[in-house]
Simulated scan of single mutants.
Amino acid sequence: MTTNAEHYLGNLEAASKTIPAEKPYVMMNMMKFKPKAQYPASYTGPKLKSSTGREAYVAYKDGFVRRATELGVDLSIVFLGEAHTQLVAGSQEGESYDVVLLVRFPSFAAFRSVLEDKEYVDEIQPHRVSALQEIRSFAVTEMTDS
């Protein structure tokens, strides 16, 4: 089954044209894990055996932070927390998530540099795909008074 977790990034070029280049970028993700990690058939790297989606996601998060640091990207996890209940429902009635994550980057370009790195694509990203059932990802910058 294909989920939005496999394609959540959309068009990075189009996004880079709408996200202010000079501002720090915060990635806000709301995520729902698969009960059991399911790696893409094309992935031949090391897999977490008998792992849950949550465990595969932790491997992904740790790999992402490690690779970003190796690439010189200064990031900080602002918040990672459990999502308990939806207080306001809309067109996605019944939608629910397991965790919410906020990660701050110096810019969207810095974030994008990790996503386009070959080692990330080949060795780290498959853990994300194996872990997530659903994801909502928002590009966020600080609101100004003007």
Score class of each variant (00 low, 15 high):
L75R: 10
G63A: 10
I77H: 08
T52F: 04
E93T: 15
A89Y: 09
S50C: 12
D62Q: 03
L87E: 07
H84Y: 13
D74T: 14
L80D: 02
R67F: 04
F64S: 03
Q86A: 07
V88G: 07
V88P: 13
G72Y: 14
A68F: 03
L102M: 15
T69D: 01
V58R: 03
R67Y: 10
V103M: 12
V73C: 01
L48N: 04
R54E: 05
A56H: 10
R54G: 13
T85M: 06
G94Y: 09
K61Q: 12
L102C: 12
V100I: 04
S76L: 05
A83F: 11
G53P: 15
R66D: 08
L80W: 13
G81D: 08
L48G: 14
R104G: 14
Y97V: 00
E70Y: 12
T85E: 07
E93Y: 15
F64D: 00
Y97M: 04
S76K: 08
A68Y: 02
R54W: 15
L87C: 02
E82F: 08
I77R: 05
G81H: 07
G53E: 02
Y57C: 01
E55R: 11
Y97H: 12
I77K: 04
V88R: 09
S51H: 10
L87H: 11
E70H: 08
E95P: 14
Y57F: 10
A56W: 13
R104C: 05
A68C: 00
L75Y: 09
V65L: 02
L102Q: 02
R104V: 15
A83I: 03
V73P: 12
H84W: 12
E70M: 00
D62T: 14
L48F: 12
